[in-house]
């Protein structure tokens, strides 16, 4: 089914990137925001024939304070936890309206977008429902690893050891003491046709995945790495560099899950030490060598598990 939907798929190359922008200048994201950048890239790839349902969060706030909007495509915000449900409603409504010939028959990409909080925590149920029901839509999780909009509180996507305002390091705590929830795996467990992780550093890869997600019929889930200089306490010019390091250290591996089969889209042969990634970010500054080693081992283990899944799929 994948192959049929993608028969017209043409890869973007640095020379063939679309000029279209779904979001206009004048948005209020912080200087150097990697989240709006990841979002911008994904939406560029999807093209202007789309309708977006947004969760509450940074991206909603910075694009829509009345009376101005940065949106150049139809966009709706309802609440924090229900982007997937709102998108379901739009998709199902258009389906029946087309059937009843009340709107022109045309495939429009329905996009739901939310932060890691709106996806992994409060919105997980609505997301699961929408994926399970099989709506034809693209869900974009913009993972900046905390609730940034409300002031950098931890989420279940906050990495181990990170400092946030609700996982502060102290005498009794190293900071966040849980390991990042694997949301792409949860999405994949729904048996949906397409799941992918992507990073704005690898922009053609990100955009190709977004385009595939839009072309495929049925639910597609994109998990986009989204550096946040404000919440991660890194320099304003580092969003791309950190995105790149996250991949090169195997902290944030790039892969697709196509009809259940894992495919590594960037194999890391000579990984950099995780420490190089951590040291650029103030949120990890308090970590001691022992904790860093613990993180390194966990990262290695998880990457190995991923490689095994990909090898398994290849062997089939």
């Amino acid at each position: 089914m994948m192959d049929a939907a993608l028969k017209d798929f043409k890869r973007f190359t640095p020379k063939t990137l679309p000029k279209m922008e779904a979001i206009a200048q004048g948005h209020r994201a912080c200087q150097g925001c990697g989240e709006v950048l990841a979002l911008r890239m994904a939406l560029k790839a999807i093209g202007k024939n789309m309708i977006v349902a947004s969760a509450t969060g940074c991206m909603e706030i910075i694009t829509s304070p009345y009376p101005q909007t940065a949106w150049q495509v139809p966009w709706i915000h309802v609440a924090f936890e229900n982007a997937a449900a709102v998108a379901s409603g739009i998709e199902a409504a258009r389906k029946v309206l087309m059937r009843k010939r009340r709107i022109p028959r045309q495939r429009t990409t329905i996009v739901a977008m939310a932060g890691d909080g709106g996806t992994a925590d409060i919105g997980l149920q609505a997301l699961s429902g929408a994926l399970e029901r099989g709506h034809d839509f693209v869900y974009i999780c913009l993972d900046n690893e905390a609730y940034m909009n409300t002031g950098i509180q931890r989420s279940s996507c906050t990495p181990y050891g990170a400092m946030t305002t609700t996982s502060p390091p102290g005498k009794m705590s190293i900071g966040q003491h849980t390991w990042k929830k694997n949301v792409p795996a949860i999405a994949a467990a729904h048996g949906i046709p397409y799941v992918a992780t992507a990073s704005p550093a690898y922009y053609t890869d990100l955009m190709n995945k977004a385009k595939k997600a839009a072309m495929i019929k049925g639910p597609a889930y994109l998990h986009l790495y989204s550096p946040c200089p404000t919440g991660w306490r890194h320099a304003g010019d580092l969003a791309i560099e950190i995105s790149r390091l996250a991949v090169k250290t195997k902290v944030f591996p790039l892969y697709e899950v196509v009809d259940g089969r894992y495919i590594l889209t960037r194999k890391i042969k000579k990984p950099k030490p995780v420490k190089e990634y951590l040291k650029l970010q103030g949120r990890f500054r308090h970590l001691d060598e022992e904790t860093i080693e613990e993180i390194q081992q966990r990262v290695d283990r998880e990457y190995e598990a991923l490689v095994r899944k990909a090898a398994l799929a290849e062997a089939e």
């Binding site: 229900n82 449900a85 709102v86 379901s88 409603g89 739009i90 199902a92 609505a126 429902g129």
Partner: peptide, 28 residues
Amino acid sequence: LDAEFVPVESEHSAISVCVGSSAAGART
């Protein structure tokens, strides 16, 4: 009845689907 019946996973999603549907122009 020629309609979409969306068997949601909660009432919170039921009403959220309805809002999306109505905003897309459907009688909901």
